[in-house]
Amino acid sequence: MTRLAGYTRELASGAGTSADAEQLARAGAAPVFADEELAGARRSPGLQECLEFLEPGDTLLVTSAAILAPTVPQFLRAMSDIAGRGAGFRSLSEPALSARVGVAADPAEVFAALEALRRRLVSLQTQAGMASAASEGRRPGRPTVMTPERIAMAVELRNLGRPVTHIARVLGVSANAVQRALASTPAAEPTQRL
Score class of each variant (00 low, 15 high):
158 R>C: 06
176 N>A: 12
190 P>R: 03
170 V>L: 07
125 Q>K: 15
109 E>C: 05
117 L>E: 00
156 E>A: 15
146 M>E: 02
121 L>F: 01
141 G>S: 00
105 A>P: 02
186 P>G: 10
158 R>N: 09
177 A>F: 02
119 R>K: 11
133 A>K: 11
106 D>L: 06
133 A>P: 01
149 E>M: 11
163 P>V: 02
190 P>T: 05
127 Q>Y: 09
133 A>L: 14
138 R>F: 15
168 A>N: 03
104 A>K: 04
109 E>V: 01
168 A>K: 05
98 S>Q: 02
138 R>M: 14
190 P>C: 02
120 R>I: 01
118 R>A: 15
180 R>A: 13
168 A>M: 05
114 L>Q: 08
187 A>C: 06
102 G>K: 00
108 A>N: 11
143 P>S: 13
187 A>I: 11
149 E>R: 15
132 S>K: 14
98 S>T: 08
123 S>I: 08
151 I>P: 01
188 A>E: 14
104 A>P: 06
145 V>F: 05
114 L>P: 07
165 T>E: 11
162 R>D: 08
136 E>F: 11
130 M>N: 12
133 A>R: 09
112 A>S: 11
182 L>Y: 06
115 E>P: 07
100 R>K: 10
183 A>M: 10
153 M>W: 09
136 E>H: 15
124 L>Y: 05
184 S>T: 15
101 V>T: 03
129 G>K: 10
189 E>K: 15
126 T>E: 14
185 T>Q: 14
121 L>M: 10
143 P>E: 08
156 E>G: 09
129 G>Y: 04
177 A>D: 05
100 R>L: 09
121 L>N: 04
163 P>M: 04
130 M>Q: 13
172 G>T: 04
114 L>K: 07
155 V>E: 10
164 V>F: 09
170 V>M: 05
104 A>S: 12
130 M>K: 15
163 P>Y: 04
176 N>E: 11
168 A>W: 04
107 P>N: 01
124 L>R: 08
179 Q>P: 03
159 N>A: 14
175 A>W: 03
108 A>G: 12
144 T>R: 15
